[in-house]
Design a binder for these strands. Structure first.
Lengths: 150, 150
DNA sequence: CAATATAGTTAGTCTTGCCTAACTTTGTCA
DNA sequence: TGACAAAGTTAGGCAAGACTAACTATATTG
């Protein structure tokens, strides 16, 4: 039995899915050229990836036509994006990492962290960023701690 | 100019390096078969990796002889191991993730996080695990927070 | 409506990283 | 010391994922 949520997606395919998700979110349309630009790959690589994603039932795709995500594709993409955002938020809001670096690090790490870590991390971000918890903002306190240490 | 610290290592090669480092740490000798077992790859894959690592000046290697790390190889391996340990420590000691899961997650994520994130993370672990900071252990407090939330 | 630019695809190649099967070297022991 | 087992290597193959170059389809516009 293969549930809809069981993704055997490579990191590369997850990147394509995320790109399509983000592009479609803006203009409701994902053009091959824009995907290629966003990911920094050639247009022919995009074509290849679309064929694979179609075979996996994640995108609606016919040659020379626009691309949309299927139900399953949306779910898979949303999970990737969620991971991405959790990580980026942790890097930026908690660790105080520069946003561009955090962006790239999140995009590379998002594929490797399973639900246990991501769930805990999300929880931890909430825990840390709820200000005034003990009359102090932890993220803020950490930044001060850092300046002393470094 | 190519400094000794500039590693163009793939995730895969970093895994081999780490394995050699760990094996050599125990018995001062890294046998091909043990590397293969540790990484779950075939012996011939190890041979291939050793050739590449030798070409990069990271291991001393002659066919049918034992393997040792060069100076540069030790430095590179130590950095990988350091990342690994920082991540694992964060997952286990701060987030409270189960140790086996943390181990695997750390091994997969260690290749993708650059020095900015790792340095900050290390600092953050110190910050969080210094108990009695405000009369409370943060990691401990987070575990309680989690139980309520989940 | 035809010419042309842009978008998309196809074909063929390369690299990385892994595998199996067969071969070679090394080491052990009767 | 010679035979056999274990370790290591080589040869050959496969899949993923990317590229370039050349071809096709679509869209624009005079």
């Amino acid at each position: 039995m293969v549930s809809a949520g069981s993704n055997n997606l490579s990191a590369s395919l997850e990147d394509y899915l995320e790109a399509i998700f983000n592009l479609a979110g803006e203009s409701n349309v994902a053009r091959s050229k824009d995907i290629a630009n966003l990911l920094g790959v050639s247009r022919s690589s995009v074509t290849g990836a679309l064929r694979v994603l179609k075979k996996k039932g994640l995108v609606n795709y016919e040659p020379y036509d626009f691309v949309t995500l299927t139900r399953a594709g949306q779910a898979a993409a949303a999970e990737v994006v969620r991971k991405h955002n959790v990580l980026k938020s942790f890097f930026v809001d908690v660790l105080g990492v520069e946003i561009d670096i955090a962006q790239r690090a999140a995009c590379k790490a998002e594929h490797t962290l399973g639900p246990e870590v991501i769930t805990r991390l999300l929880c931890f971000i909430e825990f840390v960023t709820q200000s005034g918890r003990n009359g102090c903002d932890l993220a803020e306190e950490f930044k001060r701690f850092c300046k002393n240490g470094l």
